[in-house]
Simulated scan of single mutants.
Amino acid sequence: MVDPFDFLARYGTLIALALLIIFNIAFTRNFATMQTLNVNLTQVCTIVIVAVGMTLVIGTGGIDLSVGSLMAISGALAPMIFLGKIVPIDNIYLAVAVAMLASILVAGLFGLFNGWLVAHYRIQPIVATLVLFIAGRGIAQVMTNGNLQTFRVPEFQFIGLGRVFGIPFQVILMAAIVLVAYYVLKRTVFGRQIIAIGGNERAAELSGVAVSKVKLIVYAVSGLCAGVAGLIVIAINSSSDANLVGLGMELDAIAAVAVGGTFLSGGKATIIGTLLGAMTIQLVRYTLLANGVPDAAALVVKAAIIVLAVWIQQQGRQA
Rank of each mutant, 00 (worst) to 15 (best):
V164H: 03
A72P: 05
T274S: 08
L56H: 06
N40T: 15
G277N: 01
F23M: 08
Q157D: 07
G246C: 09
Q313I: 05
G108C: 04
E201W: 10
F5R: 13
I104H: 09
G166H: 04
H120F: 15
I272E: 11
G84C: 12
D295M: 13
L105Y: 00
V164Y: 10
R317Y: 02
L179V: 14
I139A: 11
F110R: 08
N30F: 03
V307K: 07
A309L: 12
V257I: 02
V118F: 04
T262R: 01
A255D: 09
R163A: 05
L283Q: 14
F113P: 11
L130W: 00
F156E: 04
M54D: 00
G160H: 06
Q315H: 12
I86A: 10
V118S: 06
W116E: 04
F158E: 05
D241F: 05
M1A: 13
F151L: 06
G230K: 14
A290I: 04
S222F: 08
G146W: 04
Y286V: 10
F82C: 02
Q313D: 15
L83Q: 12
L173P: 02
F82T: 04
A204R: 05
L283K: 11
G191T: 07
V153C: 06
S212D: 14
G75M: 12
V218I: 12
G316R: 13
V228I: 15
I232D: 09
I92P: 03
G136E: 01
I104L: 08
R285D: 12
A175N: 06
F156R: 08
G261E: 11
F158Y: 11
T270C: 08
A203I: 01
G166N: 06
L185A: 00
I197G: 10
T188W: 04
I92S: 11
F190A: 02
L37C: 07
A72F: 02
A303V: 02
R202K: 13
G277H: 04
F169S: 08
G199I: 12
Q318S: 13
V153M: 12
L65I: 13
L275S: 07
G199H: 11
Q170D: 03
V211H: 13
L224Y: 03
I236P: 05
I232C: 03
R137H: 06
V171A: 06
K85E: 15
D6A: 11
V228H: 04
V284G: 03
R317M: 12
L109P: 01
A97E: 02
V164W: 05
F190R: 00
G198V: 09
G261N: 10
L308H: 02
D3I: 02
I89L: 06
F113R: 10
A290K: 07
T150Y: 07
P4Y: 10
L65C: 08
F158Q: 01
K85C: 09
I134W: 00
A95K: 05
A135Y: 01
L283W: 14
G267S: 05
L41D: 04
A78W: 11
L244F: 13
G260M: 10
